[in-house]
Nucleic acid binder design. Structure first.
Length: 465
RNA sequence: UCCCCGAUAGCUCAAUGGUAGAGCGAGCGGCUGUUAACCGCUAGGUUCCAGGUUCGAGUCCUGGUCGGGGAGCCA
C-alpha cells in the first residue's frame, strides 16, 4: 500500500489503495456506525476526510478517543465521497495510533479559533493551525521563487558571513558575539576596558546587520550576485514591523545604475508574486478569504502595473500640493513617513512607485552622489497596501567621493580598508537593494504582525522555543 | 525607548465595591453520511504578582511582570 501525502491523495484516482499519515484536526461521530476524521499532514491547505467504521478492530478502544492533535496512520481506499464538501475521502481499512494527545482537556491548540497573540505563546504547536501552516508553505514558496528568479537571470547566491568584526556599518545596534567570561573578562592594562584582543577573533565581533558590504566584493567579480540569509538588529524596538532576527535578500549588480536596480526590483517582485499565486493557490485563497480581503487582487494589480519612477523632489511637491492633511509635515530634506509613502502609491498613482534621488543627509555613506551634489542615487520601492517594501541604491564607486562622504559623516576610514580597496582595483558602477523577507511574507499573506510571518520570532524579551 | 489599552476556566470573553458566569474545547450520554455538526448533563478558578484602601476588592490606589496598539528607528 503506497504511502502518500494528503496533497497527492486529494488529487489521486478513486480506487487507489493508500496509506496516509498525519494529525487529527477534528473527529465527528455518527451513530450510523462511522466516524469522520479530518486528517492533515501539512502538504497542502486542505485536510482529507477519513471515514472510520465500527468494524475497525480498535474503533471503540481508540478511534472514539481521538482528539485534535493526535497522530495517526491510516490504510484504506480512496473513494468518492457520499457527502458534500470533498471529492474523495479515505475509507479506512486499518487505523493505527502513533501518538495520542496526553490530556485533551488542556491541549493548547484545540480545534477552535485562537488569537495570534496566544499562538505565539505556543509557537511549537501553532504550525498545526490553518494560518501558520499556510504561512510556512508560503514562506517556503517565496524563498524558492526568489532563488528561481535569480537562477533564471544569471545570479549567484553568495553566503555572506553571520559574524562580522566591523562595528561601523551604521545600521542600528549590534549583538555582540564573544567567548569571554562575562563575569570576569580580561581587562586592559589600565583596567578601564575589556581587552577584546583576548576574545575569540582577537577583536570585537558581532552578528551581521547586513550582508551588503560583503556581497559588493563578490559583485565586483561575479557581476550578478545576491545574499539571502539571517540578519540581526539589537534595536529595542517593539513594533509589529520589526524583529531582532530576520531574513533579508540583497541582490547586487555590476556595470549597473539606479535604473537597472529599479528594473531588477520590479522583475523580482512580479515574478515571485506570480509564482506564489500559481503554486500556493489554496493558501493564497485562504489568506484572501480569512486574513485580508482583496489580497489576491492586490497582488495581481502589482503584477499587471508598470512601476513608476518618481524623483524624491517631485514626490515632495506632489505631497505638498495634495491638500491632504498629514500627521507629519512634508518638507524637502526630511525622510518620507509611512503615511506619505502610502499616499503616493495608493492615492496619487495607484501603482507601485519607485522614489529615487533622496537628499544625501538622510541616506547612508555608500550611496552614490548625484551630480547636483545634494541628492544620492537611492531608491525606495513603494507598493499599495504597505508602503515601502524595498530600499536600495547605486553604490559610490569613486574612491575620492566615497572618502569625502566617510569624512563628512565622521566614519573611520581605516575600518573600511577592504571596502575602499574595491574602489582602487578596477572599480565599476554597481547597485543593489535590500528586501526584508518577513515583510514580503506579510505583504503576500496579509498578516499584520511580523512575528506571525516567521516560524520562531525573536524580539526584545522574546526568544523562547 | 516614549504614549495609550489590557491580563478572570484549556481558549475567547462577561460580572454597579457585596455568593465567579457564558460560549467554545474536554468527559459522559443522545441523534445524524457528518462538514469548526446538533441536543442534554458533568467537571473545570490562587480573577498575572507584591503591597495598600475598605466591614468587604476580579472591580479602587501604588509598584512590578507579561501581552496588544501607536510613535521613533528601520528591512
Amino acid at each position: 500500500m503506497a504511502s502518500m501525502r494528503v496533497k497527492d491523495a486529494l488529487a489521486a484516482d478513486v480506487g487507489s489503495a493508500v496509506t496516509l499519515k498525519g494529525w487529527v484536526r477534528t473527529r465527528r461521530d455518527s451513530k450510523a456506525g462511522l466516524s469522520f476524521i479530518q486528517l492533515h499532514d501539512g502538504s497542502c491547505f486542505d485536510p482529507i476526510q477519513v471515514v472510520a467504521k465500527t468494524d475497525l478492530s480498535n474503533y471503540e478502544a481508540e478511534v472514539l478517543h481521538l482528539t485534535t492533535g493526535c497522530a495517526i496512520e491510516v490504510d484504506g481506499e480512496l473513494v468518492e465521497s457520499k457527502g458534500k464538501g470533498q471529492r474523495v475521502e479515505l475509507l479506512a481499512s486499518a487505523l493505527r495510533v502513533v501518538g495520542m494527545v496526553e490530556d485533551p482537556d488542556t491541549y493548547p491548540a484545540s480545534a477552535k479559533r485562537h488569537s495570534f497573540e496566544y499562538l505565539r505563546e505556543v509557537a511549537h504547536l501553532r504550525p498545526r493551525t490553518n494560518t501558520f501552516g499556510a504561512m510556512a508553505r508560503v514562506r517556503h514558496r517565496l524563498a524558492y521563487a526568489i532563488h528561481s528568479y535569480f537562477e533564471n537571470n544569471g545570479f549567484y547566491w553568495v553566503h555572506t558571513p553571520i559574524i562580522t568584526t566591523s562595528d561601523a556599518e551604521g545600521a542600528g545596534h549590534l549583538f555582540r558575539v564573544s567567548t569571554l567570561d562575562a563575569m570576569n573578562p580580561p581587562l586592559t592594562e589600565d583596567k578601564q576596558n575589556v581587552d577584546w584582543h583576548e576574545d575569540f577573533f582577537g577583536k570585537q565581533s558581532f552578528l551581521t546587520v547586513s550582508g551588503q558590504l560583503n556581497v559588493e566584493t563578490y559583485c565586483c567579480a561575479l557581476s550578478r550576485v545576491y545574499t539571502f540569509g539571517p540578519t540581526f538588529r539589537a534595536e529595542n524596538s517593539n513594533t509589529s514591523r520589526h524583529l531582532a532576527e530576520f531574513w533579508m535578500i540583497e541582490p547586487e549588480i555590476a556595470f549597473a545604475d539606479l535604473a537597472d536596480n529599479a528594473k531588477l526590483a520590479e522583475g523580482l517582485l512580479k515574478y515571485v508574486f506570480d509564482d506564489l499565486l500559481t503554486h500556493c493557490a489554496d493558501d493564497a485563497a485562504f489568506f484572501d478569504q480569512r486574513i485580508e480581503k482583496g489580497l489576491i487582487d492586490r497582488l495581481k494589480h502589482v503584477i499587471a502595473s508598470p512601476f513608476r519612477t518618481l524623483p524624491y523632489t517631485e514626490a515632495v511637491e506632489i505631497l505638498q500640493k495634495s491638500g491632504k492633511k498629514f500627521e507629519f509635515p512634508v518638507e524637502w530634506g526630511s525622510d518620507l513617513q509611512s503615511e506619505h509613502e502610502r499616499y503616493l502609491t495608493e492615492e496619487a498613482f495607484n501603482q507601485p512607485v519607485v522614489v529615487v534621488d533622496y537628499p544625501k543627509d538622510i541616506k547612508a555613506f555608500y550611496m552614490r552622489m548625484n551630480d547636483d551634489q545634494k541628492t544620492v542615487a537611492a531608491m525606495d520601492v513603494l507598493v499599495p497596501g504597505v508602503g515601502e517594501l524595498i530600499g536600495g541604491s547605486q553604490r559610490e564607486e569613486r574612491l575620492d567621493v566615497l572618502d569625502a562622504r566617510l569624512d563628512e559623516m565622521g566614519l573611520p576610514k581605516d575600518e573600511y580598508g577592504w571596502y575602499r580597496d574595491l574602489r582602487r582595483y578596477g572599480t565599476v558602477p554597481h547597485a543593489g537593494f535590500g528586501l526584508g523577507f518577513e515583510r514580503l511574507v506579510m505583504y503576500c499573506t496579509g498578516l499584520q504582525n511580523i512575528r506571525d510571518a516567521i516560524p520562531f520570532p525573536r524580539a526584545p524579551g522574546q526568544a523562547a522555543f
